[in-house]
């Protein structure tokens, strides 16, 4: 049985922990609002991009001279998995759920005899993947120092992927991230990046019988557009991830704060009970002593 002093110490330590988790929850809430705004602000660009791409894809259907970013290399032997996670922990199952999805995919691909390479964006993903797939990880990109996520960061990653594609380091590239639904629900998602999957559900505009004019021409526009699209998709994934991370951390810290509260209640009850028991014992001793005289 813990002594009164032990109990007092434990109550103090749990209270200190509760203060920390409470503070982390509030910080996450503030960051979440900003991340959500950024994700929403970036949505129009990605949507228009989808629409333009869908229009162009229709124009290129079945043609032989379509760019390789669209048609692929014609093989699917080497798969690159880009796993986007957070750089920090303490956000519930956020990192684990993304990595779990990527791991499942990697195992399936390996079972089919494909070669798998992994590029980690975010340190935590690498920490989890290291044990099982350490040899497959090509590189880890950390955005820890980044204060505000800009398009430039996504563009750097996009360019890196394109350079690898040009070197024929992989045939198919898939992106893993968590789509932000709400504070309590983030959905781990996989999205094929290269070759570009024609976006589903993108609205194609009814041209009312007219034909698109292309300046300079379709090929050149597509050459320009597809690399940009890779960066845009990475940017979208990173923004969704940032919002999801803060959301996950907020609910994880909310839970932790509540648990700490429950623990404090329980400890306080047993502390009071024990104090009472001690007083009673002392009283009985005094009374017994007085009676003995």
């Amino acid at each position: 049985m813990a002594s009164l002093k032990d109990l007092r110490n434990r109550i103090a330590s749990v209270k200190a922990t509760q203060k920390i988790t409470k503070a982390m929850q509030m910080v996450a809430a503030a960051k979440l609002r900003r991340a959500q705004e950024a994700a929403e602000a970036a949505r129009p660009y990605a949507e228009r991009m989808d629409a333009v791409l869908a229009n162009l894809a229709v124009a290129f259907e079945g043609r032989q001279d379509a760019p390789r970013l669209m048609t692929g290399t014609g093989k699917d032997d080497v798969h690159l998995l880009v796993v986007c996670t957070a750089d920090r922990g303490l956000c519930g199952g956020f990192n684990n759920s993304i990595v779990k999805l990527a791991k499942e995919r990697a195992r399936r691909l390996q079972a089919d005899g494909k070669e798998v390479k992994i590029l980690c964006v975010g340190k935590k993903g690498f920490d989890i993947l290291r044990r099982d797939f350490g040899k497959l990880v090509v590189d880890t990109i950390s955005l820890r120092e980044v204060k505000k996520l800009g398009f430039g960061h996504a563009d750097d990653i996009g360019k890196r992927l394109l350079a690898m594609f040009d070197d024929e380091a992989f045939d198919v590239c898939t992106l893993f991230y968590a789509e932000f639904q709400s504070v309590i629900s983030q959905i781990p998602t996989e999205q094929q990046l290269i070759p570009a999957a024609v976006p589903e559900g993108a609205e194609t505009v009814d041209l009312q019988g007219a034909i698109y004019e292309y300046e300079p021409d379709e090929g050149e526009i597509l050459q320009d557009l597809l690399p940009r699209n890779v960066s845009v998709q990475v940017f979208r994934a990173l923004l969704e991830n940032a919002a999801s991370e803060q959301g996950a951390r907020m609910s994880a810290m909310d839970n932790a704060t509540r648990n700490a509260g429950e623990m404090i209640d329980k400890l306080t009850t047993s502390y009071n009970r024990q104090r009472q028991a001690q007083i009673t014992t002392e009283l009985i001793e005094i009374i017994a002593g007085a009676e003995a005289l």
């Binding site: 041209l207 007219a210 034909i211 698109y212 004019e213 300046e215 300079p216 050149e220 526009i221």
Partner: peptide, 19 residues
């Protein structure tokens, strides 16, 4: 400012895609 030269857009311009 299109790559192949500036162009003005008014209502009911022909569908065009340009860099």
């Amino acid at each position: 400012p299109g790559t192949d030269g500036d162009f003005g857009v008014l209502k009911d311009h022909a569908p065009t895609m340009s860099t």
